[in-house]
Every structure is written in structure tokens, then in C-alpha cells.
């Protein structure tokens, strides 16, 4: 009996961390048993591809939630990034200077490497800038980031509409559709998407920053108890600005990845991305109230959410009109389970 006690304590301590993992496994097992065709390598490839954009956006959002803020502009910042890239690339193809585009012997115009890098870099810098503005306004005005980023969401929407005038932009640097749609063939049946490497690198870097740097520790301190952190000498305002800037950057990267996946950029993309990204972070176990969670949790949350999304497509016994409700119900159950396990841990 005494030997079992530490195990029970350990389970309690890790209950919140284990719940998302349990959810992920439960979903995989459920769909494997109750649907036909779900459990194979092709589905794994689909899940990994579709998780990429969510993972990128959710990574930045994790920083923001950890410091007890929220960024409602992520989806529209992502859309703006895609639109900016598309418009910029089209401009380079049409009228760009020689350093950005060259005309081949057959009259075809191609964008140079410099042009392609610029088309990818400028939207990301715009995302960072938007994040910095979000952060500065939040800190300076002392208004909730909820309000500031809500307004920024509309500004980003307007800018994207203005840039595109409602048109679609199918031309983009080849690396985007390639990384989002292609991969390395492993064996005869499985293709490991290139996007996994991009997302993996970003998430690994984010994990490193949160766990092994002073800034990361300050993020947790700011989210856990902002006043205590401030009294301990942490420049909490700087931390908030930093987190929102990171969030802006990853949102832009997510927008570019999604444009590659969809093969074009336009205003009608990323419609559900905000709620999906928040759901992924929270499903992973990161607290909405700050100070608890991390990138590992977000990774599990993204995978669980995407498995749910993809898996529900294989379910044939649910009425099409009810499908979204079922998704909401499963999500709600998983979140409630997380909440209960968190309570157990606190008790």
C-alpha cells in the first residue's frame, strides 16, 4: 500500500499533462475501431500535413496564453501574410525590377531567389510588427489584449482586402506548395511531409526558449502572477510585447504555410484558424489563465485536434448536418476532462 502511494501521487501530479495524451490515444483508438480506412499511413500523412498551419499558429499563441494574454488577430494576421506574399510575388512577376525577377529566353518571367526570399520575409516581418504594436498598445493602454487584438483583427482584415481586392493569388515561391504538399517517401506507402521539419524546427526553438532561457522563465512568471513577477524585477511589459511579437511571427508563418497548402493566397482563408488554434493550445493543457503549459502540451493538443478533425471525416454514421456539433461535443468532453484532472491535481 505504501509502495503504491508515490505512484498515485505521481499520477495526480501529472494528471493534467497526461489527460491530453490520453485524449489523443482515445481518439486514435476510437476512429480506428469505429471507422473504415482511418488507421493507415495515408491518414497519418494527412494529419501531419493538416496539423502544420495549426501547429505554427498555436506555438505563438502558447506564449501569449502562458503570459495570461490572448491574441484574437492571429487568423487574420495569417491571412494578411498570405495575401501580402501573393500580391508581392505577383508584382515581382509583372513589373518587378531586374534584381527581383528575370525574363528567360522563351519569354517566361521567373522571380529570383532574392525576390522569393523577400516575398517570404516581408510578410513575416509584418506579422512581427503587428505583434509588437499589439503588445505595446496592450501594455501602454492597460486595456485587455482581447480588445486590442480584436481591433487589430479588423485592421488586418481590411489590409488584406485592400491588397487583394478580393482576388486570388496563385503564384508564390515554389518552396511553399512544396513544403506544404510534398514530402520524403519512406517505404512504399508513407510520405513524411516537409512541413513536419519546418514546424518541428519552430516548435523545438519555441520549447528551448520557454524552458532554457531567462525570457521563457519570465513568461511563466508573468502569467503565473504578474504583480509578483514585477516585484521580482521582471519587466512584464517587455515580456508581453515579446510574446505577442512571437505570436505575430508564427501567425504569419502559419498563413504562408496555409497558402502553400491551398495553392493560392486570398482573403477567404483561415476562417476557423483562430478558434482552432486556441482549442489546440487549451486541449493540450495550457491554461487560459497563464503560467501553466508549454510547447509539448501544444504539440499534443494540435495532434489531438487534427486527429479529431480528420477522423470525423471517416465517420459515415453521423448526419452531415450534425458533424460540427459532434466535433464540438467531443472537444467539450476533452476540455472538461482536462479541467477535472487539473482540479484533481490541485486538490
Amino acid at each position: 500500500m505504501f509502495e503504491q502511494f508515490p505512484i498515485r501521487m505521481n499520477l495526480r501530479t501529472h494528471a493534467r499533462a497526461l489527460a491530453p495524451l490520453a485524449t489523443l490515444f482515445a481518439l486514435v483508438i476510437f476512429f480506428s475501431i469505429f471507422t473504415s480506412g482511418f488507421f493507415d499511413l495515408y491518414t497519418l500523412n494527412s494529419v501531419l500535413k493538416q496539423a502544420s498551419t495549426r501547429a505554427l499558429v498555436a506555438t505563438g499563441l502558447t506564449f501569449v496564453l502562458l503570459c495570461c494574454e490572448i491574441d484574437l488577430s492571429v487568423a487574420l494576421v495569417a491571412t494578411l501574410a498570405g495575401c501580402q506574399m501573393g500580391v508581392l510575388y505577383k508584382w515581382m512577376l509583372d513589373t518587378g525590377p531586374a534584381i527581383l525577377s528575370v525574363t528567360g529566353p522563351d519569354g517566361s518571367i521567373t522571380v529570383t531567389l532574392v525576390g522569393a526570399v523577400l516575398a517570404l520575409l516581408l510578410p513575416v516581418l509584418t506579422g512581427v510588427l503587428i505583434g509588437v504594436i499589439n503588445g505595446l498598445l496592450t501594455v501602454w493602454s492597460r486595456l485587455p489584449s482581447f480588445i486590442i487584438t480584436l481591433a487589430m483583427m479588423e485592421i488586418a482584415r481590411g489590409l488584406a482586402s485592400y491588397l487583394t481586392k478580393g482576388a486570388q493569388y496563385p503564384d508564390m515561391p515554389g518552396v511553399l506548395p512544396a513544403s506544404a504538399n510534398e514530402g520524403i517517401l519512406i517505404g512504399a506507402d508513407f510520405e513524411l511531409p516537409y512541413s513536419v521539419f519546418v514546424v518541428g524546427t519552430i516548435m523545438l526553438a519555441a520549447h528551448f526558449v520557454l524552458i532554457y532561457t531567462r525570457f521563457g522563465r519570465y513568461v511563466y512568471m508573468t502569467g503565473g502572477n504578474r504583480e509578483a513577477a514585477r516585484l521580482a524585477g521582471v519587466r512584464t511589459g517587455f515580456v508581453v510585447v515579446g510574446c505577442l511579437a512571437i505570436c505575430g511571427m508564427t501567425a504569419s508563418l502559419g498563413g504562408l504555410m496555409n497558402a502553400g497548402w491551398i495553392n493560392s493566397a486570398g482573403i477567404n482563408q483561415n476562417l476557423n484558424l483562430l478558434l482552432e488554434a486556441i482549442a489546440c493550445v487549451v486541449l493540450g493543457g495550457t491554461s487560459l489563465f497563464g503560467g501553466e503549459g508549454g510547447i509539448k502540451n501544444t504539440l499534443i493538443g494540435v495532434l489531438a485536434f487534427t486527429v479529431l478533425d480528420v477522423g470525423l471525416g471517416y465517420v459515415t454514421w453521423v448526419d452531415e448536418f450534425l458533424r460540427r456539433s459532434v466535433m464540438g461535443l467531443v472537444l467539450l468532453s476533452a476540455l472538461l476532462l482536462n479541467g477535472q484532472l487539473a482540479k484533481i491535481r490541485q486538490n
Binding site: 497548402w261 483561415n270 476562417l271 476557423n272 484558424l273 471525416g313
Partner: peptide, 23 residues
């Protein structure tokens, strides 16, 4: 007829098509 709803969401429709492509 097996119906798949696009839900006016580009990403969702693409995801559904990916699934169908394996059936």
C-alpha cells in the same frame, strides 16, 4: 452518394478531399 460538406471553409474542403483521395 457519400456527401462531404465544404462548410464554406477552404481548409476543411481540402482536408475532406485528401481523405476521399484514399478511398
Amino acid at each position: 452518394v457519400t456527401w462531404f460538406d465544404g462548410a464554406f471553409n477552404l481548409e476543411k474542403q481540402r482536408s475532406e478531399m485528401e481523405r476521399l483521395a484514399n478511398q
